[in-house]
């Protein structure tokens, strides 16, 4: 593990009012690593990755992303965010723009890339998620799976160092889950650093370098997929796995 760290969280705690949402989280994500975070709902998985691009504020501890510490008074948050891609459960595409424009907006408006250049990049990544033919449609004209792939392409157009996935397949019809997972697997194969919150254990087994299990705001267990699925150490992990692998 000699690759440089892209995300470093040290002793991170977060409260929503009285509720202790994240408790003393320590996690390092290194370049090229693929990490899957799982756990029951309300365990703080989404909250944690939303802290990594400061969509949420943490109150204690340090989070350092690409060498920049995240805190409430930082002035270069845009630079950090444009370097950290995020894919949401509900896609959050911009419905008033075409698919192509969704992908061009970030590079043009944040990075100052020329329109011609942005269009080229957008088409490249739309090609990569295998929907270049939908470029001039509006998001609502696409299926859920296609929309999520556009959202992935939109993030990739910013050429981020790390991609965060916040339950990217949870809002999809079963048929469309695999097309999104395939896209993500392709990304992983190309060496993208990824942190995925997901319940897709097959994906975790196939792609992850490390699986992290969270419960009640804490990291309960982490390990390689083989160790995690083969020999879970904690009772809570065993219970969780038995529940979700039952079907």
């Amino acid at each position: 593990m000699s690759a440089p760290a892209i995300i470093e969280a040290k002793a991170v705690s977060k409260w929503y009012g009285q509720f202790h949402a994240l408790k003393d989280i320590n996690l390092t994500v290194r370049r090229g690593e693929r990490i899957v975070i799982c756990g029951p709902s309300g365990s703080g998985k989404s909250t944690l990755i939303r802290c990594f691009n400061r969509l949420e504020a943490h109150q204690e501890g340090d989070i350092v992303v690409s060498g920049v510490a995240l805190h409430g008074k930082m002035t270069n948050v845009a630079a950090v965010r444009s370097n950290v891609g995020m894919v949401f459960q509900h896609f959050n595409l911009f419905p008033h723009m075409t698919v192509l424009m969704n992908c061009m907006a970030g590079p043009m408006w944040v990075k100052g890339v020329s329109e011609k250049e942005a269009r080229k990049t957008a088409l490249t990544f739309l090609e990569r998620v295998r929907i270049p033919e939908q470029a001039n449609k509006f998001p609502i004209q696409l299926s859920g799976g296609q929309q999520q792939r556009v959202a992935i392409a939109r993030s990739l157009c910013m050429k981020p160092d790390v991609m965060l996935f916040d339950e990217p397949t949870s809002a999809l019809d079963p048929e469309m889950v695999s097309e999104v997972l395939e896209t993500m697997t392709g990304l992983a194969r190309d060496g993208m650093t990824m942190v995925c919150v997901t319940h897709e254990m097959g994906f975790a087994r196939a792609v992850a370098d490390r699986v992290i299990f969270m419960d009640a705001g804490q990291i309960v267990e982490e390990g390689t997929p083989d160790a995690f699925f083969g020999h879970p150490r904690h009772d809570r992990t065993k219970l969780f796995l038995s529940q979700i692998l039952k079907h």
């Binding site: 969509l55 948050v77 845009a78 995020m86 949401f88 959050n92 595409l93 911009f94 907006a105 910013m158």
Partner: peptide
Amino acid sequence: DRGQWEASRSMGFG
């Protein structure tokens, strides 16, 4: 929808 703010923010829009 607040997701629109989040998506914009996550791409670095001011």
